[in-house]
């Protein structure tokens, strides 16, 4: 397996100078590389310009139905990219370590913690955040149910709760109050809206709404 042909994942790497740089890498089968030299240069502050170019990598993904093309550092998490680069601040940072669920988003339809997800690994994925759940002005049934049953107080964990609640039903884990509680336990709510959240999910589930 020695080939410098880019695998499909490299097709977004268009910068030819970057390609040349890659050729010097011994890692010919690997793609999407941040060169060590650039990192060293950056760390040593030797060439800020070089560092600025090579510290970053192209990232193309779909967020709430729109394709976004970004240039990101490999260390940037999906959460920080959403909040700081795309101004999608509905996805919240509550712990930054996968311990609270406030950052829950859907990746290809499945709920995950965006704080432990490196953005660069989302290449080609479809991301849905709370901002992408409603259809225009028409709220998603889960959003309506959260309002109706007061599934929140301060509202900070709410986007994560709602994204998780939608998954909870989709996954088939909303069969009983007990099951909902277990499968919603990855989302911490410090205001203590849990019973209301359960009621909201039951309403959507029992109402037979499409989620």
């Amino acid at each position: 397996m020695k080939s410098d042909k880019p695998t499909p994942e490299t097709t977004d790497v268009k910068d030819s100078s970057r390609r040349d740089f890659l050729k010097q890498s011994t890692l010919l089968t690997a793609v999407a590389v941040t060169p060590v030299v650039a990192i060293k240069a950056a760390n040593d502050h030797m060439d800020e310009h070089l560092a600025a170019v090579f510290e970053k990598m192209p990232l193309k993904m779909e967020v709430n139905g729109k394709t976004v093309n970004l240039s990101v550092e490999p260390r940037s998490t999906l959460l920080d990219i959403l909040r700081e680069q795309l101004d999608l601040t509905g996805t919240k940072k509550g712990c930054d370590h996968g311990q609270c669920g406030a950052c829950t988003v859907h990746v290809d339809g499945h709920r995950i913690n965006s704080c432990l997800t490196l953005g660069i690994m989302m290449s080609g994925k479809k991301i849905t955040t709370i901002e992408g759940l409603a259809k225009g002005d028409q709220l998603h049934p889960m959003q309506e149910a959260f309002i109706k049953h007061d599934g929140f107080q301060c509202g900070y964990c709410t986007p994560g709760q709602i994204m998780s609640a939608v998954s909870c039903i989709r996954e088939g884990h909303a069969g009983s109050e007990h099951e909902i509680r277990e499968y919603m336990s990855g989302n911490v709510c410090r205001c203590g809206a849990y019973p209301n959240i359960v009621n909201a999910i039951l309403e959507v589930k029992d109402g037979g709404f499409a989620v």
Binding site: T29, V31, T34, V36, I39, N43, P74
Partner: peptide, 10 residues
């Protein structure tokens, strides 16, 4: 810390 990210195909 910044790091190099590689995605081997095999």
């Amino acid at each position: 810390k910044q790091f190099q990210y590689v995605r081997p195909a095999t």
